[in-house]
């Protein structure tokens, strides 16, 4: 931008820039989205290969890649990924289901709202990591404590979006359905749930992001397997190549699961909104 302002005759420059933007926009958007990662990769390669950044601070892309291949060949990578994926999916499924149930209760029933809102709000105010020592004390270091932490993480986004959305379903639609004899579960199934489907999906996407976040928190603090464990293990052994590999893997898996959910979301919105 500053070049445009300082150079005389900026008009032609501006049209050139406009032309470049228009050409870029003609590319498919997934390709445009890959531009920045590719740029980062190139920058990374250049700075590490030239020795601008020492390799003990940042290894080259190739050595991170070969660290991955090495781990995979030794058969260690797949179990780490598998156990993490299992924890995330299990915690996400249970947490969002609970969030849906309690969100529906609080969103639909004024009694449930009065009884539960304060308590759930207070629980939500507890910083997530504060649960860890208690969960470890109660459930030991096993799977239960980790999945429970992820359940806590996935619960609140779904609970909040669903309870709020249900309270704002068009009153006129509800009254129209009531005038045709719909009430209780039939009303919920016919009007209220379909009306909040788009909100449910935005809650689910937030919950999924939270699930990955809480997974790493759980695994960092006490695990013998999983991507979070790989992070601490690599840190302790000074394996910065594996550390960066794990971060990249977390980014990739987080993005893939979110993309899957967003496809489902688009379909659901086309169907229900």
């Amino acid at each position: 931008m500053s070049a445009l302002e300082t150079k005389p005759g900026g008009g032609t420059n501006r049209t050139e820039v406009g032309g470049a933007v228009a050409r870029l926009l003609r590319l498919p958007s997934w390709l445009l989205g890959l531009l920045v990662p590719i740029l980062v990769l190139v920058l990374w390669q250049v700075t590490t290969a030239t020795g601008l950044v020492p390799s003990y601070a940042l290894p080259t892309p190739a050595s991170v890649f070969s660290a991955g291949v090495d781990l995979a060949e030794r058969g260690e990578l797949a179990p780490h990924i598998g156990i993490s994926a299992q924890r995330v999916l299990l915690g996400f499924a249970i947490g969002s289901l609970l969030g849906l149930v309690f969100g529906a209760l609080v969103g639909l029933s004024r009694l449930a709202d009065a009884l539960l809102s304060l308590s759930i709000g207070a629980l939500r105010a507890v910083p997530s990591l504060a649960w860890v020592p208690l969960l470890v004390l109660w459930m030991k270091m096993g799977e239960d404590s980790k999945v429970t932490l992820i359940i806590i993480g996935a619960f609140f986004p779904v609970f909040t979006t669903v309870s709020l959305a249900l309270r704002h379903v068009d009153k006129q639609l509800i009254e129209a359905a009531r005038s045709f004899g719909y009430n209780g579960l039939a009303l919920l199934r016919t009007v209220q749930l379909p009306a909040v489907v788009p909100s449910i999906f935005s809650g689910l996407r937030l919950a999924l992001a939270q699930a990955w976040l809480f997974l790493v928190a759980a695994e960092l603090l006490g695990a013998s397997m999983g991507l979070g464990f790989l992070l601490t293990d690599s840190q302790n052994n000074g394996r910065i190549d594996r550390l960066i590999l794990t971060i990249i893997l977390l980014a990739i898996f987080g993005k893939i699961t979110d993309a899957l959910l967003s496809v489902a979301e688009r379909k659901a919105i086309a169907r229900w909104a």
């Binding site: 009254e175 129209a176 005038s179 045709f180 004899g181 016919t190 379909p194 009306a195 169907r271 909104a273």
Partner: peptide, 25 residues
């Protein structure tokens, strides 16, 4: 059940087709 109501606004369910909206009645 012996009454049916038509309101000033159509109040149709946006996710249902015309046919499915009529079926609600």
């Amino acid at each position: 059940e012996r009454c049916a109501f038509a309101f000033q606004e159509p109040r149709l369910l946006p996710w249902r087709t015309v046919r499915e909206n009529i079926a609600l009645g």
